[in-house]
Design a protein around this nucleic acid. Structure first.
Lengths: 162, 162
DNA sequence: TTGAATTAGGACGAATTCAGTCGTATACTC
DNA sequence: GAGTATACGACTGAATTCGTCCTAATTCAA
């Protein structure tokens, strides 16, 4: 099925929310959880992870909470997913270095490693700021996303004409 | 983690194996399972699924087994994965039509739906025949894969120069 | 300085998904 | 009919994911 975990989803949503409310003082896990109806304690742990990895700045105590530690433009979906879900491997046997550590019997992995890379690259192009502007009515005009769509078309054409 | 299930892996491996042995009469699930040290009964079910969906031609009885129902060039990794793992959704709430069926609270989904599309496209470019020629030493010259890599570079450039 | 709000984080359990097995029926070949 | 396969549903155990609970530690403010 190749899907993100809910945690990663929640993490992206939370970062988006923070990016949407830049003026305010820090927002608590509870605030964000209520906004999206996410289990608060679960979200809390996700935010802690993101803070530990330097994506968020945390602030304990009264009126505490989280703020983005970096700009929304500089945080990619790839980073977020990687922090929350761990390294992304499409195959079940690949290692971080890119090769398969099973027996030589599995030779499928080489091309799939490339798929893996492609997915990574796509995710690296998606920034938190892209999520913010992603109002369904206007998303087609979002520059970065549009780039991806365009290039997707190029791929189509290229293969088609091959 | 965003990974394929073992079943999908096994399915791809089996198809690759069949594509590599075109001359022979049909190969049994047991034959293939032994070649890759996969649990035979598990592989059997996977092959049954693929046969049901028209990717394989099955043949019961003595000297029976499976053969590719279509050419290795015409079967894509996307199809295989979809048949085995079901529709591929990167988000946990997306529907087959592409939109999110949760409350409006989750607005992340639009851009991620595009990621989803991108991944699908990449997987559609990988054909079983690509797996066959994917000897590590020569994979870089495999035309189709090379296309992907090249286009990936184009994406890099395009974004970089934006 | 006390108390409420908040982050930090470990331990745990429930729910779901995945992997693999078993048993039985059916089809085909010899 | 015997032997070899596929077909397929039911089931179990393992792994993963999801979510909760509990207990600190931190910070602010009255």
């Amino acid at each position: 099925m190749l899907r993100l975990t809910k945690k990663a989803d929640y993490g992206l949503m939370a970062l988006k929310y923070l990016a949407e409310h830049p003026g305010q003082a820090s927002l608590s896990a509870k605030d964000i959880a209520e906004a999206y109806r996410i289990p608060p304690q679960l979200l809390a742990k996700i935010l802690q992870q993101l803070a530990r990895e330097g994506l968020l700045q945390s602030h304990a105590g009264m009126n505490g909470g989280y703020t983005l530690a970096r700009t929304a433009e500089s945080i990619t979906a790839f980073e977020v997913i990687r922090i929350i879900d761990g390294p992304l491997f499409i195959t079940s046997c690949a290692t971080e270095s890119g090769t398969c550590d099973l027996t030589s019997s599995c030779t499928i992995k080489e091309p799939l490693a490339r798929v893996n890379d492609s997915i990574s690259e796509v995710l690296k192009k998606i920034r938190i700021s892209d999520l913010v502007e992603a109002d369904p009515a206007h998303v087609r005009h979002s520059s970065n996303i549009q780039d991806l769509v365009t290039i997707q078309d190029q791929i189509q054409d290229k293969i088609h004409n091959a």
